[in-house]
Amino acid sequence: MAMTKNIRLILILGILLISANAFAQKERNLGIIKSALNGLHYSVRASYGLGGVSPVPLPSEIREINSYRPLIGIALEGTIEKDINKWLGIHVGLRLENKTMATDALVKGYKMEIQNGPGVTVKGYWTGNVKTNVKNSYISLPILVTFKLTPRWKMRIGPYFSYLLSGDFSGSVYDGYLREGSPTGPKVIIDANNPASYDFSEELVRNNWGLQYGIEWRAFSHLNIFADLQWGMNSAFPKDFDTISFKMFPIYANLGFAYAF
């Protein structure tokens, strides 16, 4: 469900990008040239994001990352840049993006709390494997300061604000045991053939913000290549959400290209 939504999102953005390109195929119209003379630059950009939603630093309860897959995380952005002076500028964008990952970790004495129907909670300490799948879509607003290092190299840094459009944060626990209630509660084995699944999608916070840091290289006159790091500053889950006792921060590196008009 979430996946099809994401695909639709990507398609719409793709179409927008293509139409923007078609528009660009016509000669620079006067407006754009005028804007450029006033220090305004427009670009559209696409990137591939790689990262995870993770506690920072990793708590000692996490003993091993058995596997990690980034899945498909695409970001599409329309950008306006305004020069302040020869070196400094402002970068404001509107970005649609997916932040995804799939991990499988080995944990020891990991505190868990699972909702089991209305008002019914299972609490306990889990030792064993935890699989997590994240497929979140956001609309984001980066507001960055840019520094021109050389005519071809540019650096940028600043905050971004994201709104969660659709979220999937789910997984399962397997091949281990739960101590129900406390570390001295009944021990219950959950084996690999009978995983217990969880779904915290509904718990994800809608409003997110973070810091973004990146560099951009002008490869051709209209084509730039860039890399950005997005570091979430608020946890993916609200403060009163005890199931995961750690703050979970989305941390993603994006690699992509920009078409500058």
């Binding site: 993770s54 630093p57 000692s60 990352i65």
Partner: peptide
């Protein structure tokens, strides 16, 4: 970000 495993703490 990529090699998260390098940050595993003491048991």
């Amino acid at each position: 970000v990529l090699p998260l495993t390098s940050c595993i703490q003491d048991e």
